[in-house]
Design a protein around this nucleic acid. Structure first.
Lengths: 241, 241
DNA sequence: CTTAATCGTGTACTTTATACACAAATATCG
DNA sequence: CGATATTTGTGTATAAAGTACACGATTAAG
């Protein structure tokens, strides 16, 4: 045990890429740093992990302190530990992404103090530390996940239209999808419940509302079902000599 | 800076699941622990990360010290940091897997002292710490990767037969593949170079030897090619009510 | 020369992906 | 109240990919 205390140790933290979807746009929550290093720059929300706290717990805590939301979808992505990634000393950070329904977002004391703000992912500029790299790893993983797991629903309100769902996928995958093919594919999975309600307050033909049937999804998975959305636009196949 | 020194810190390590393929069997390299905790049990090779060492470097070092092999395929998988995963104190560990050509494996002083031994993945029993959980995460990722990246070749000698390649895939995916379909698919990617040589020393019709064309792969990837091996056996589709 | 073992190959069928256009429904405005 | 603007919801034909399946050819050994 005394030997253990002689081991080299480092500080370690979690950083969390918090995704939300609003106005057809994929967004992430950033905070403006108030202190050095990188004072004044935008950064991913994160914190040091407490001595008696698991990693996932720390990531959830960061999210809840900032947004007031608990019980969210959260996944570990990758750990960044380059020797010089933090100017003050060795800090290893474990990156997570989480998906929240942006309507549940509350301005908490923490988010107010830290000047948290939603940024469209397409307009994010230089971030503090190696956070651009972390963001990019998280976004890449999200793109992959959204094609193989029914995660999109985490970002939408309980009731949503098929058009909203399609726009969400388009924002995440950064591609356009064909309306008819998208609907055919999604509906063929039998994972959506037609609520037999219509959208209200729109100045045109209102769309039908659906919700995600998570019970049915669990059941299907047990029977070997696997969610897959492979749709893409055209292929450009180059000739193989 | 003095504030930084007051942060809670923990020891951190890397653990490495080293895969090899031999005699039609997927294997991993384990070491027998000589000291408490878990003295006498098999464990994944790993070590504490040095103060001025990046994570990937540490994982490579562990592998090279043990096997004498450098320049191997290595990928970070997941970080395990449960509060009580290590009996002596808080230790966060970053899990990696690596793929080596088992014929290059040398018994080094380190592997000898640590009683390193190859174990068929199907016969691995209880390991020290949370290493079964780590192994399982790494094996799962390997299964996924091998379908979407041409990694199999890392585990084979430079020259190999299509049958050997198929057996490798079957060992990793834990499924049987159809010979004709497998060959059709692999050959259609134009990633193999027919060496116009035959196997020697076998008591039956010798198979042709191939090697992987990594230059061509790089080129194809730039043109948007993506490796995919989706092959599986039958489907069991259960009725959707 | 017979035997035993593995190699190498093609085709028909099923499933999935892709491309594409227009009438129906509603709110708004004059 | 009728015309206009907007978005919804739907089907079919074609192309590509996945799956099932059997046997003659080639070699070494005896």
């Amino acid at each position: 045990m005394s030997e253990f205390n002689n081991f080299f140790k480092s500080a370690f933290s979690v950083d969390n890429v918090i995704f939300g979807f609003d106005e057809g746009d994929l967004k992430i929550l950033l905070i403006k740093r108030g202190a050095d290093p990188f004072s004044g720059m935008w950064a991913l929300p994160g914190d040091l992990v407490y001595p008696n706290e698991d990693l996932n717990t720390a990531a959830s805590r960061v999210l809840e302190e900032l947004t007031g939301i608990s019980d969210v979808y959260l996944e570990q992505v990758q750990t960044f530990g380059a020797v010089n990634r933090h100017p003050l000393g060795r800090v290893i950070t474990v990156a997570y992404y989480s998906l929240i329904n942006i309507n549940k977002y509350m301005v908490t004391a923490a988010s107010f103090a830290q000047k948290a703000k939603w940024h469209s992912i397409s307009t994010v500029k230089a971030l503090a530390f190696d956070h651009n790299q972390i963001l990019s790893a998280c976004f890449d993983l999200l793109k992959q996940r959204v094609r193989t797991r029914p995660l999109g629903f985490e970002l939408l309100p309980l009731k949503f239209t098929l058009t909203a769902l399609q726009h969400l996928y388009e924002a995440i995958l950064e591609t356009e999808l064909d309306k008819r093919n998208f609907r055919k594919k999604i509906l063929s999975m039998n994972l959506l419940i037609d609520l037999e309600e219509a959208q209200e307050g729109v100045a045109h033909r209102p769309a039908k509302l659906y919700k995600f049937d998570s019970d049915r999804y669990e059941k299907l998975v047990k029977d070997g079902f696997s969610f897959e959305l492979k749709e893409s636009k055209k292929k450009m196949l180059l000739e193989n000599s």
